[in-house]
Design a binder for these strands. Structure first.
Lengths: 136, 136
DNA sequence: TATTGTTATACTCTATAACTATA
DNA sequence: TATAGTTATAGAGTATAACAATA
């Protein structure tokens, strides 16, 4: 259970802004929005384990870059729906591509099948945890 | 490649000091020392992706708790070998046991076999990355 | 001169609490 | 009154650089 955070640190250490194309925090958030377009800010906070206040700052950065836009929810005008833009989608694709060499570096010990298995297991675990978050 | 850091955050968020028995950072370091008794401080810095200066502070805390001790290397008196104490070993065991409920929580979506597979893959990946670090 | 560990300092990230607007 | 988002501030964690001891 300590292995996961340790491996994560190795990934973060290597995922420099220069390589990924944006600060790694932003990439993580944008990647989530890529898969969950239109979520509310609070859902983002739960999924990324971040404070709601920091989500605001993070979204400001992404908005300045033109990667997302905030849309007021007509059904409840207090809420914002966060939408990823085309530029945002392209940035995610570029970042994913650039990150592949890090994956090769980190997962040297595993062959292609094993990597596939690892991602499938992680994806299922993350999805379940996301769904469990109190979405209101 | 963003899944791992995201899952790691969920783990860290839930691994409160109250539950684990010590700050999570300390547990990660102590767990590494449990498996690599007698390493030098620089190796620790590489393995944990931390600055050498912060390792000093972290080890000070662990030493104050009586979980580790620093021993000068007779072969090269500049170096410190970091040794885990019996109290340290016991603390790791307790923390691992306490953390099991977090594992259940995070890995709900996976059955016992799948969890086993996941740990085996992660262990191999981490070992390889550790060995690759410039140990001098 | 180069390296190991230490110390002091500055910086980033994160968490806490008060504020605005909508419900 | 309660909730979603914002803002401002304080705190924890992290990195940077200078220092002492040893090689």
């Amino acid at each position: 259970m300590v292995l996961l955070p340790r491996l994560a640190k190795h990934i973060m250490r290597r995922s420099t802004e220069e390589l990924v194309g944006m600060p790694f925090r932003l990439f993580i958030a944008l990647s989530y929005l890529h898969d969950h377009d239109g979520v509310r800010q609070q859902q983002l906070a739960d999924a990324l384990c971040m404070d709601a206040g920091n989500i605001v700052l993070l979204l400001n950065e992404l908005e300045d870059l033109g990667y997302i836009s905030r849309i007021r929810d007509p059904a409840d005008r207090r809420r914002h729906k966060v939408a990823i833009t085309n530029a945002g989608r392209e940035a995610v694709e570029r970042a994913k591509h650039n990150q592949e060499q890090i994956e090769d570096d980190i997962l040297q010990a595993l062959d292609a099948d094993e990597r596939d298995t690892l991602w499938r297991l992680l994806t299922r675990a993350v999805r379940r945890v996301d769904d469990d978050e109190p979405t209101t």
